[in-house]
Design a protein around this nucleic acid. Structure first.
Length: 723
RNA sequence: GCCGAGGUGGCGAAAUUGGCAGACGCACUAGCUUUAGGAGCUAGCGCCGCAAGGCUUGUGGGUUCAAGUCCCACCCUCGGCACCA
């Protein structure tokens, strides 16, 4: 064994031995061992394994091996998130069929993954674009459908003009498409949605018990955006009135209601249509609404600096508190696009004295500013904090908090409103007008209407069509395929047509962690017993970019399946860790155009997989990332060569010479490495191993074979191929 | 604007129940060694200074025998949200 450390030969050798012996084929149960489900977020087949993928998978494998050495029966599976826009766009760009492109990439990437020497159980591999897999994605859709959690709606949707498809709200970043950076526009399309909002409260509450980064939990909480307030009915008065109606508003600051000097409704608000005949300046109003609708979401927020609106002339609202007091005060009603149609009641009571937005609007349109909470100077600025009520009838002198309680009581007693909780979370739009995705298992029958496909008819296979390019009209490419669309109605057996949209790829990844437990099952998405053996996931590792998307959707699916009694747990991922992002040596985000991409294959060739794995662990804090240092890896290379020298020295005496310092240092290092890996502090674990090696070399003559073997063992989660 | 994370040598970073700041590594310098090296070994390496000595954890205050660590104010960088009433 002595001689220079030849990583290429050794790594190949061990990888072959591992494979032949099948030591990473994990049994569902091993006597005397506890199961540990260790999972990395599966990659999408982009073409090549990126250094960022390595940074996710390599340190994660260190943790998995560590757990295994600690006596757990560790499942560490891998697969491919194969459907979706990124893969499809890349294929289209190269003029290759998405299927060919994807499966070709999977082949290369599987090979690259094997070169890492991770303890993956390849026998459980899943590919979400395989019919055996998406059969169950479709089955999931049907379960949600049965439970009333799927609905169809024609509504303005985020449309990416370049990808030719609708996007979920979560996929629109700064008004642009998450994938191609194109400005997203609003477009009216019929589409399918999942009622994730039904689960808002549970998605919020169940975060508390999770061992997740606090940051991620906060991001999810903010995304769900719970706010507690009240709903208030303002009476409406028109000239020549015989219509009696109300405008409902939502507020969290009921205590400020005596300062309300006008109402604002969103351009989408139904009151405008309903009272059309009473609006004296209808032309002006309609024109304003038209202008507002033209704006994209981005423009609506970009124009935040300058608020605009139009009064609905001829319509007045009556504050219920003043109405009851006898001298009902009539206040004007405006339509303005700073009020959102989809949140709360789509209308607000404007209190310029105590709300910055209303203040700005009131100043611009010369509306009265009436103080109702003391503590600020409302002639200069809106005073938005809580305080003591003034100018507020029977509530004068109360604190804001107390007033809110008393005023809700009053509202309820007088039937003018009630408490109300609102969430920012919106339903999950899952229709995609694209080829490369799971077909939605729905059929349209002239007689029976919209009918779900029967479970026994699954999977509805994605046809191999040549014309897979997205269309500008907003029709899925599947609409071209006569063979695909024409079918029989599952109910009346008459002629019917298939839904041609495919599902958002996040649907595929919302349940894949369950499939690994039983990836080849033909009868169920996974056997209940096998699920019980492994789930929930004990440690989940992946990028922070999924903080709200994938992680929220997966939690939603788990809860639905729990309610349907398929699962006995409510949360899929008990513990979660994120890796940081590795930047180019120039400190910039890696990209082909900047030419700063680090190629992991080249590094492995030059330094070996152990060295690359270890360097990634040594770079710094795992969740931090940072610029790639091109020379830093040399230190790890030297270290591994020195370990090799020490470990392969045949002349070493078998009997241990008791050297107290060394023995003590061994104990300290074992403790430190153990604690640090548990905490994902791989960098300091390695540094302690380096310190130990330095000491060992200084006392080389006194080292025993056992010392060296122990050292190699300590090192083995990081460098599993050594010796 | 709001929420979150962070700011320590030339570089990546250690160290926070307050106790010698800079472990470990990269780069660098000198010497040894090698036919040669971008290999190996030995030594040095926060900054200023010939030295004695002084200074040093984003900035400014404060608490303390003692502060990177605690308190107050502010600046900067990164990530997220963004008219959510």
């Amino acid at each position: 064994m002595a001689g220079k450390h030849n990583h290429k030969k050794i790594e190949k050798k061990w990888q072959k031995i591992w494979e032949n012996k099948g030591i990473y084929k994990i049994k569902d149960k091993v006597r005397g061992k506890k199961n540990f489900y260790h999972l990395v977020m599966f990659p999408y087949p982009s073409g090549n394994l990126h250094i960022g993928d390595w940074y996710n998978f390599a340190p994660a494998d260190v943790f998995a091996r560590f757990k295994k050495m600690n006596g757990f029966n560790v499942l560490s599976p891998i697969g491919f998130d194969a459907f979706g826009l990124p893969a499809e766009n890349a294929a289209i760009k190269r003029g290759i069929h998405p299927k060919d492109w994807t499966y070709q990439n999977i082949k290369t990437m599987a090979k690259q993954l094997e070169s890492m020497g991770n303890m993956y159980d390849w026998s459980r591999k899943i590919i979400t674009a395989d019919p055996q897999y998406y059969k169950w994605t479709q089955w999931m859709f049907l379960q949600l459908y049965k439970k009333g959690l799927v609905y169809r709606k024609k509504a303005p949707a985020n449309w990416c003009p370049k990808c030719h498809t609708v996007l979920a709200n979560e996929q629109v970043i700064d008004g642009k498409c998450e994938r191609c950076d194109t400005q997203v526009v609003q477009r009216e399309i019929e589409q399918w949605l999942f009622k994730i909002t039904d689960y808002a409260e549970r998605l919020l509450k169940d975060l508390d018990g999770l061992d997740w980064p606090e940051k991620t939990k906060i991001m999810q909480r903010n995304w769900i955006g719970k706010s507690e307030g009240s709903i208030i009915k303002f009476g409406v008065e028109c000239q020549m009135l015989n219509i009696k109606c109300d405008i409902e508003v939502f507020t969290t600051r009921l205590d400020t209601i005596f300062g309300c000097t006008y109402l604002v409704v969103a351009p989408e608000h139904s009151i405008i249509k309903n009272l059309e005949s009473r609006v004296q300046n209808l032309g002006e109003v309609e024109n304003y609404i038209k202008q507002a609708k033209k704006k994209s979401d981005l423009q609506r927020t970009d124009l935040a600096k300058e608020k605009t609106g139009v009064e609905l002339k001829g319509i007045k609202a009556i504050n219920p508190f003043s109405a009851k007091g006898g001298n009902s005060e009539k206040i004007p009603v405006y339509v303005a696009d700073y009020v959102l149609g989809h949140y709360g009641a789509g209308a607000v009571m404007a209190v310029p004295a105590h709300d910055e937005r209303d203040f700005e609007f009131a100043q611009k349109y010369n509306l009265p500013i009436k103080e109702s909470i003391s503590g600020g100077d409302v002639s200069k600025n809106a005073f938005t904090q809580d305080g003591i009520l003034t100018n507020s009838g029977q509530f004068i002198g109360m604190t804001s908090k107390k007033a809110r309680e008393e005023m809700v009581k009053w509202l309820k007693e007088n039937k003018f409103g009630d408490k109300k909780i609102n969430y920012k979370l919106r339903d999950w739009l899952v229709s995609r007008q694209r080829y490369w995705g799971t077909p939605i298992p729905i059929v349209y029958c002239d007689k029976c209407g919209i009918i779900p496909v029967l479970e026994k008819d699954l999977p509805i296979k994605l046809p191999d069509i040549k014309n897979y390019l997205p269309t500008e009209k907003g029709k899925s490419p599947l609409a071209h395929s006569e063979k695909f669309i024409n079918t029989k109605c599952p109910k009346c057996k008459g002629k019917a047509k298939r839904e041609t949209d495919t599902m958002d790829t996040f649907v595929c990844s919302s349940w894949y962690y369950l499939r690994y437990a039983d990836s080849k099952n033909n009868k169920k998405f996974a056997d209940a017993k096998k699920i019980k053996n492994w789930l929930p996931v004990d440690m989940y590792i992946g990028g922070a970019e999924h903080s709200v998307l994938h992680l929220l959707y997966a939690r939603f699916f788990t809860k639905v399946l729990y309610d349907l009694k398929y699962l006995n747990f409510k949360e899929p991922f008990s513990a979660l860790r994120h890796q940081g992002i590795i930047l180019g040596s120039d400190g910039q985000k890696m990209s082909k155009s900047k030419g700063n991409i680090i190629d992991p294959d080249g590094l492995v060739k030059q330094f070996g997989s152990d060295c690359v794995r270890m360097h990634l662990c040594f770079m710094g804090q795992y969740d931090q990332g940072g610029p790639w240092n091109p020379t830093g890896i040399l230190g790890v290379k030297r270290f591994l060569d020195r370990v090799w020298e020490l470990a392969t020295n045949n002349k070493r005496q078998a009997t241990s010479v008791k050297k107290p310092n060394i023995e003590r240092l061994f104990h300290q290092t074992i403790k430190k490495v153990t604690e640090d890996i548990e905490k994902f502090q791989f960098n300091t674990a390695i540094s302690s191993l380096m310190i130990l090696l330095n000491e060992m070399e200084k006392n080389e003559s006194q080292l025993s074979v056992a010392n060296c073997q122990l050292f190699v063992k300590l090192l083995s989660p990081f460098a599993p191929h050594l010796t």
